Structures are given as structure tokens and as C-alpha cells.
Simulated scan of single mutants.
Amino acid sequence: MTPEQILPSPQRRQTYWHTALALAVLAAVVWLARRHWPMVETGAVRLAVADQGWLLVAGVATVATWPCSAFAQQGAVPDRLPPGRLVAAQFAASAANHVLPAGLGAGVVTLRFLMRCGIPFAGAATAIAVKGTAGGIVRGALIAMLVAVCPGVLLVPSLDARYLVAVCVAAVGALALLAGPLSDRCRRALTALRAYLGAVHARPVRAAALWGGSLAFVALHCVALVAVTRAVDLPLPPARVALLHLAASTVAALLPTPGGLGSLDVALALALTAAGAPAVAAASAVLGYRLLTVWLPLIPGLVVLGVLVRRGSL
């Protein structure tokens, strides 16, 4: 089967652009790492002698993120899913997400799992979209809350009112042009989505699982980073570290690198340093956080992925 038969031309071009951008980001990260290698090496040494108790807390928080992700995915599905296989699928999805760009791996794994559980393609795709939307809303609410608690940490650039007006006019014009061709399609999609959300939220247990699991997932990642900063004696308050993590991960999500590889590392290190952390401590904290959340679970996650494929669960 040729590549033309596997992907339509627009999707194939989009994949090429994503791959090229990911390679460019990774090349830039490698260049930065080589340029600042003494600082990275010193940070690694500092991590090796860090407080083991706090690192254990970070590890426990990381492990707890996968059941929380499974909890949120179950909340986005009206039907009951097998809990053990659901947690295993989320663990495997996190590993696949570190191999393929822009969350594609996690989406594909979860989609196949839901379809293997008897959910039609449209319902499975909607469930994934609902979970992602809930996670984005929770992340935005936490950022807003932490900005109020830690004023002045995030510096929002001031924009001329004329630029804002121009952007609004352009957006309204684009919507007006697309309103005719897409109105019926959008109306049908919104109607179907509203019906699906109604089915999910008609059961309070599902709604609690969706929103509670999404909140716990994001909060536990913040706890993991805070624990690592405590382990390496990084002198920043926990609330500020959590806010910087949420902001940096949001910015890094705009770049299609696998699992935020490179983009999240640089964004998080720069955010911690700009907030007043010593460069060596910031590098050590980022290394420890990424080691716990990406590199240590990667091989076991890929093994679980292979087992699920072999058993027909994916």
C-alpha cells in the first residue's frame, strides 16, 4: 500500500509540516543543550543528590495521573468501560503520546480502545473530544485562579486597541464567509454534541468522573513538579511553580513535538528562571520532572501497548 492510499493529500501534507516543525524544534533544543551543557550537567548532578522523600512524592503523584486520566475518560462515556483495561490503555496512550506528535498517539490508542469496547467511531471520537475539552476548561480555570493568587507572575503583553479591533473584524468576516456553507454542518454537529453531553451529564456519577478526573490529572502533574522543586531546593512557592507549569505546558502544546519533547523542557526551564529560580536549580527540576513523567514510564508503557494489541484490546 502506497503512502497516497494511506493518507489523503491534505492530511499527508499536514503530517509533513508537523514532522518538519517537530524536527526543527528538536534541532533547536539540541543546539541549546550543547550551548548550555555545563549547566545541564550540573543540574543532573544536583538531581542525583536530591531529597529522596520528595522525589518519592513526585513519583507517586505521577503514577496517580493514569487512573485519574482513566476516570476522566470513563466520565466522558455514558456506557461502562472495563476499569482495568481502561487504566492500562491510558498508560499505553501516554507512552504513545511521547512517540507521535501533537497528542496523536494518545488519541489513536484511546480511539481504538473505545471502539474495541463496542462504541461506534463517532461516539468514541466525541468522547475523546469531550475529555479534551474538559481538561482544557479545568486548566484554564486553574490558571485564572492561580493568577489571582500570584499576581504579577505571568506578564501579559500589552496590545494596541487598533490591533484588537482589526483581529475582531477579521474574525467576524471569516465567520460571515463560512456561515453559509458550514451552517447546516455545524448545526448538526452541535446538536449531536449537545445530545451526547446531555447523556453524560444526565448521570451525576459520569459528570463527577469527567470533571473530577480532569481536575485531579492536572493537579497531580503540578504536585509532581512542586515535589521535584522541593527535592532540589528550588526557592519558589508551590502556587507559583504550579502556575508556571500550567502556563509553560499550555504554550508547549502549540508545538507538535512528541509529548512536548524539547518545547516543554525549554518553556518550563525559561519560566522557572524568569520567576527567579537559579538556572541550575531550574534545569535540575525540569530534568527530574521529565524523567519521572516521560522517560521512566516510556518503556513500560510501550510494553503495555504491545500487550494490549496482542490481546486484541486495541
Rank of each mutant, 00 (worst) to 15 (best):
R13L: 09
A195W: 05
C168R: 02
H221E: 15
L270F: 08
A148G: 09
C117G: 13
L296V: 14
A207T: 06
L81D: 09
T126R: 15
G53K: 15
P238M: 04
V30A: 15
L287I: 11
T19L: 13
A279T: 12
F217Y: 12
F91D: 12
A122H: 13
V99W: 04
A24W: 00
V108P: 00
A33P: 00
C168D: 11
H221F: 11
T257N: 02
P204C: 10
S183A: 14
G140I: 02
A134H: 04
L178D: 09
S313R: 13
G262E: 09
A209D: 09
V232I: 10
F113H: 00
A192Y: 03
D51N: 11
A171F: 06
T62Y: 00
L308M: 04
A227S: 07
A279P: 09
L159T: 14
A93V: 02
A207W: 03
A134W: 08
R194Y: 01
V226R: 11
V108T: 13
S313C: 13
P38E: 01
L164D: 10
L26Y: 05
A209N: 08
L47P: 12
V25E: 00
L244H: 04
E4H: 05
R85N: 11
C117D: 08
L32G: 08
A144Y: 06
N97C: 05
A24N: 04
V49H: 13
V200D: 01
A33C: 03
G276S: 07
S249H: 01
R310L: 15
V109A: 05
H18D: 12
L220K: 14
H221V: 09
M39E: 15
V130T: 10
L190F: 05
T65Y: 03
L81N: 05
W37K: 14
L261E: 03
G301I: 06
R139K: 14
L164M: 12
A269P: 01
L197T: 10
A279N: 07
H36G: 10
P157C: 00
W295K: 01
R187D: 08
R116F: 00
V99D: 07
R34K: 11
Y289R: 07
L142P: 10
V165L: 14
